[in-house]
């Protein structure tokens, strides 16, 4: 068994798929994995693949041409997952896709397809949760600033939505688990950047603690619920506790 490994970003993953395919070792004799590899196996040869933009372009182009645009979106979303096995699942999906063509995205009965579909569903659901539950707070510089701690790398999935929602505002969303931020200057495109610990603590320090709308929102939130219908279980179902850490209305 040969295991192709690569870094956990989209470009490396596409290059890895290219190299694994062109090695011509037979699909059942290879496996693909993203680093870090927690527990190397015996009788396995590990082969590290470095990102290469030309190979990435080729893979993306052939997925879009030979399968479909929809399949490419599937693959991109699945690649943002936190699942350790995602790259192998994507590879199996691509293999099936090249033989089945554009029909592949609706062949839910096939395990190679349904596993990528499942990844896709998880990530899209999480991204949607963050569209709902992100809370911005004002910095002293009037920038809107938000912190999230998602399981999957959802920044690139939610940033376009917020660019559309607030095109003429300065805002940034920080993924604390990955130290990655989506920054959107007013009336420009957003960009991704990684932040150092120092920059982070600087930003946290400039939070505007006097924002009157925070307490107004808490008041509204508190008075919104009808006592006679109180149902905390239902609330937890819709709004799991893990999201509440960074939400204004649940801060003391």
């Amino acid at each position: 068994m040969v295991v192709f490994t690569c870094k956990d970003d989209f470009e490396s993953m596409m290059t890895c798929i290219y190299d694994a395919w062109s090695a011509r070792l037979g699909h059942s004799n290879i496996r693909l994995q993203t680093e870090p590899i927690e527990m190397p196996e015996l009788f396995c040869q590990y082969c590290y693949v470095e990102a290469d933009s030309e190979k990435t372009q080729k893979v993306i182009r052939s997925i879009q041409k030979k399968i479909s645009m929809e399949a490419y979106k599937f693959i991109y979303t699945a690649a943002m997952s936190c699942d350790t096995d995602k790259l192998d699942k994507i590879y199996r999906f691509v293999v099936t896709g090249f033989s089945a063509g554009s029909r592949v995205t609706s062949m839910h009965g096939i395990p190679a397809v349904s596993s990528v579909f499942e990844l896709n569903r998880r990530i899209t659901n999480e991204a949607h949760h963050f569209k709902e539950f992100i809370r911005f707070s004002r910095l002293e510089t009037q920038v809107l600033y938000s912190v999230i701690e998602p399981q999957n790398n959802v920044l690139t999935l939610i940033a376009p939505y917020f660019s559309d929602r607030m095109p003429s505002e300065n805002w940034m969303v920080l993924d604390r688990n990955r130290n990655l931020a989506a920054v959107h200057p007013a009336d420009q495109n957003y960009f991704l950047t990684s932040l150092s610990q120092k920059e982070l603590s600087f930003i946290e320090g400039t939070k505007d603690c006097q924002d009157p709308y925070v307490s107004l929102w808490k008041t509204f939130f508190f008075f919104f619920s009808v006592e006679a219908r109180t149902n905390y279980r239902c609330q937890r179902n819709f709004l799991p506790l893990k999201f509440r850490k960074n939400m204004t209305e649940f801060q003391p």
């Binding site: 569209k131 709902e132 539950f133 559309d164 929602r165 607030m166 003429s168 505002e169 939130f221 919104f224 619920s225 009808v226 006592e227 219908r229 109180t230 149902n231 905390y232 279980r233 239902c234 609330q235 179902n237 819709f238 709004l239 939400m247 209305e249």
Partner: peptide, 18 residues
């Protein structure tokens, strides 16, 4: 400022689960 999404977006859930 703002857009709208046909599916609707909930932003929070009150203590009564609404």
């Amino acid at each position: 400022l703002g857009n709208s999404c046909a599916a609707g977006i909930c932003h929070s859930f009150a203590a009564d689960g609404r």
